[in-house]
């Protein structure tokens, strides 16, 4: 994290170093005619302890952005500053190891830290308790429902005890009731640990329910269109009128963004990507 602060990036930095900083980040997949500009000149800051929701249509590059931040993939241009040792990513799919029990899956997060066996098991049990799966440690992932697997994945990400938590549509597979409960749980953990969270979702209300800021991405290429601060007092409720109102505002903007693409067919790869550098 050595980048000098520039005022061009948005976000609440309060003079601190941001936990995550993206500067002019672009990502192109493929080469030549078949290349696809997934992200174009994205600037984004997430302050320590800040909850930022990333919103955008399907295929706009949200998962791509998280992979870049996580260091699983390299940007084609621009720079990303983040402490890669203190970062956890919860994937869009559960990504559990099928040969391990639920508990052992969570323990994998502690193994790389060199904890002893007994301590790993106890800590894993705690994290499973947090996602309300206390009694399921000895099951195998395939014996759980999709939503429960996603919660195991959440427990595993939390067990990494990172400072930055990247979450890719973590609650997409859950029913509304469980999702509400996990929102509360996540909010509590975020507060307690002072986490910086970058949370991807399709669901505008979810974004308003959780975020300090909601960042709207455009599609093809993905760019930051607008950055909505959410100042509603916490705890918020997904079904409250205030959340609904602000969500409506953002949905309006999202709709405009999607309609921009209405005329052109959506899935055509761009010809030679415009040079973004």
């Amino acid at each position: 994290m050595t980048a000098p602060l520039t005022e061009q990036a948005g976000g609440r930095t309060d003079g601190q170093q941001p936990a995550v900083r993206l500067q002019a980040v672009s990502k192109t997949y493929g080469q030549g005619k078949a290349s696809l500009l997934a992200l174009d000149n994205v600037a984004l800051d997430v302050a320590p302890g800040e909850f930022v929701c990333l919103l955008g249509a399907s295929g706009c590059g949200k998962s791509t952005l998280l992979s870049l931040v996580a260091g699983l993939d390299a940007p084609s241009a621009g720079r990303i500053d983040v402490d890669r040792r203190r970062i956890a990513l919860m994937f869009q799919e559960p990504a559990l190891f099928p040969w391990l029990t639920v508990s052992a899956n969570v323990e994998m997060a502690l193994r790389a830290k060199g904890l002893g066996k007994r301590e790993r098991r106890d800590r894993a049990a705690e994290y499973l308790e947090i996602v309300h799966l206390g009694g399921f440690g000895r099951k195998r992932p395939h014996e759980l429902s999709g939503g429960m697997r996603q919660r195991v994945s959440l427990a595993r990400a939390l067990a990494q005890d990172a400072d930055v938590l990247l979450m890719d549509e973590p609650f997409g597979a859950l029913d509304a009731m469980t999702r509400d409960l996990l929102h509360d749980e996540l909010e509590r953990i975020w507060r307690e640990r002072d986490l910086a969270v970058l949370f991807v979702t399709h669901n505008v209300r979810e974004a308003v329910r959780l975020g300090d800021r909601v960042v709207l991405l455009s599609s093809r290429p993905g760019r930051v269109v607008e950055d909505f601060p959410v100042t509603l007092p916490r705890p918020r409720r997904t079904d409250s009128a205030e959340v609904a109102e602000q969500a409506g505002e953002i949905t309006q903007r999202l709709r405009q963004e999607v309609m921009r693409h209405g005329a052109a067919p959506n899935r055509v790869p761009r010809e030679a990507a415009p040079d973004a550098r």
Binding site: L72, F91, M108, A109, A112, K113, Q160
Partner: peptide
Amino acid sequence: ILLRAGHMLGF
């Protein structure tokens, strides 16, 4: 996806 998960967990 499992490789990526393993990478994220620090392996």
